[in-house]
Design a protein around this nucleic acid. Structure first.
Length: 463
RNA sequence: UCCCCGAUAGCUCAAUGGUAGAGCGAGCGGCUGUUAACCGCUAGGUUCUAGGUUCGAAUCCUAGUCGGGGAGCCA
């Protein structure tokens, strides 16, 4: 008999049909009268299927011993309308086969709520819980929606390299990649000779695919990367990971306003699609994780983002009368408290800040005519903060070279990047979106370590 | 990396210098078309680790490890 996923059973199967379902026991409610209710979950959807087992099922007594929380089974039976509240249909088992038991004395997941901190220690089992199953499905749905968004607009999916020898891509500390014998080198008195290393020079894990994406955008056109990204920063916060997933579109002939339009449309579209595709999971988040999440997301989907030049943001913050730990003045990098004030109190919706002071931003961002600012943009959202960072890129060769000099970068190291400005340069723009931060926004979860299956953070690479 | 807080039963927590407890979970029994089931009984502890103070330390001190909140770096 063909196995059916519970999602399909609950959606399509008619009462009276004969079914084969398989999954894991969430709970069992047993009556000594000779029947039991088993909640069976296979992860295909939020809901479990109630399986009714009575004494007509072979090996009933043995099954009652074996079917504890966490056990896996196959049940064959008839789908019937349920006479009780809580579910419309239920499976009346004719036979039950146990695949594997789960010792109730030792199985860590109990029939009760657990703290996220505890579940993080058993990340290999936590996706069997309501919350982490829902996160896995929403993460999948938003990933799918991201591809749909770009594919439907004719963007090319670009596989940017994971390993890079660009010494400094403008962001953060990098993880070094080497095949040199570090234990041996530790005893050596001489300097490391990287010509002996695998790539013949110092190599690292990528912190961004942007520079490569620019070259592809300036040839085959609109493109996007979507892959893992690595930062060796010693960041210990609920918003940072050492390994995270980033989406980086890059578009030729886009100026900053086009870039902002795309970023806004991107966020609103993916949120709308997740709300459409995962209604049960989202209802769960709204009920148990953050009771304002659906309202917040609908508000984002239905309203235009605020667009605010940095200079005006500084003005608002200085005049708002709010006391900040860090005083605001033109030229400072805005602190978390400032960003939160803008998105959570002043505007109460996402804000795109743009035209930042040149001194705060990397060399590749396009200089404005005022000589003070660059065409940078950050998309800030309530609760999560910065979710997108992007810019129009500097396409003028002379300006780019002088900016590199200003940032103490050697143009020879970036010869291929500079070449783009030498041969058929065009205005272009792009941005980077942190997938896990989008998931924080979507789910209402508070810690970024809980929206990626196996988080990597300083001192943590278990599983 | 910096500041603050914490670590006690499988989980969530109480006990503030004098015999280590509760709820949930688990086991057993009862009850019930149950569904965060319900009722009763039972078992379960090197109080994070290493030192120190004290007649006596879960409790006070020092160091470390890990966790949480905030900050920085940023996606």
């Amino acid at each position: 008999m063909q196995r059916q996923k519970i999602a399909a059973v609950l959606k399509n199967s008619a009462v009276g049909s004969e079914l084969d379902v398989r999954g894991w026991v969430r709970t069992k409610r047993e009556s000594k009268q000779g029947f039991a209710f088993v909640e069976l979950n296979d992860g295909s959807c939020f809901a479990s299927l109630q399986v009714v087992i009575d004494q007509s099922v072979p090996n009933y007594a043995e099954l009652m011993q074996q079917l504890t929380t966490g056990a896996s089974l196959r049940a064959i039976g008839e789908l019937k309308a349920s006479p009780a509240k809580g579910q419309t249909v239920e499976l009346h088992a004719k036979s039950v086969q146990v695949y594997g038991t789960a010792d109730a004395e030792k199985y860590p997941l109990q029939k009760k709520q657990h703290s996220f901190e505890f579940l993080r220690e058993i990340a290999h089992l936590r996706s069997r819980t309501n919350t982490f199953g829902a996160i896995a499905r929403v993460r999948n749905a938003v990933s799918s929606s991201i591809h749909n968004f770009f594919q439907s607009r004719g963007f090319l999916y670009l596989h940017a390299p994971i390993i890079t020898t660009s010494d400094c891509e403008g962001a953060g500390q990098m993880f070094q990649v080497t095949t040199l014998d570090l234990a041996k080198l530790a005893h050596s008195k001489t300097d490391v000779d990287f010509t002996q290393d695998f790539f013949g020079k110092r190599a690292s894990l990528t912190v961004s695919g942007q520079l490569e994406a620019e070259t592809v955008a300036c040839s085959v056109g609109d493109c996007y990367t979507f892959g893992p990204t690595f930062r060796a920063e010693n960041s210990n916060t609920a918003r940072h990971l050492a390994e995270f997933w980033m989406v980086e579109p890059e578009m030729p002939f886009y100026e900053l306003t086009d870039n902002m339009q795309l970023a806004e449309s991107f966020i609103r579209t993916t949120i709308r699609e997740v709300l459409e595709h995962c209604p049960e999971d989202m209802a769960f988040f709204n009920q148990r994780i953050d009771t304002t999440i659906l309202e917040t997301l609908r508000n984002i989907v239905e309203h235009d983002f605020i667009r605010l030049p940095y200079t005006e943001a500084v003005d608002i913050l200085q005049k708002c009368g709010q006391k900040f730990d860090y005083p605001v003045s033109w030229g400072i990098d805005l602190q978390s408290e400032h960003e939160r004030y803008l998105t959570e109190q002043h505007f109460k919706q996402p804000v795109i800040l743009f035209d930042y002071p040149r001194t705060l931003k990397p060399f590749y961002m396009r200089c404005n005519d005022d000589g003070k600012t660059v065409r940078a943009m950050d998309v800030l959202v309530p609760r999560v903060g910065e979710i997108i960072g992007g810019s129009q890129r500097e396409e003028r060769l002379d300006v780019l070279l002088s900016r590199m000099a200003e940032c103490h970068l050697n143009p020879e190291e970036y010869w291929w990047y500079v070449d783009l400005r030498r041969y058929g340069t065009v205005p272009h723009a792009g941005f980077g979106l942190g997938l896990e931060r989008l998931l924080l926004l979507l789910t209402g979860m508070a810690n970024i370590r809980d929206v990626i299956p196996f988080p990597r953070t300083p001192k943590h690479a278990e599983f």
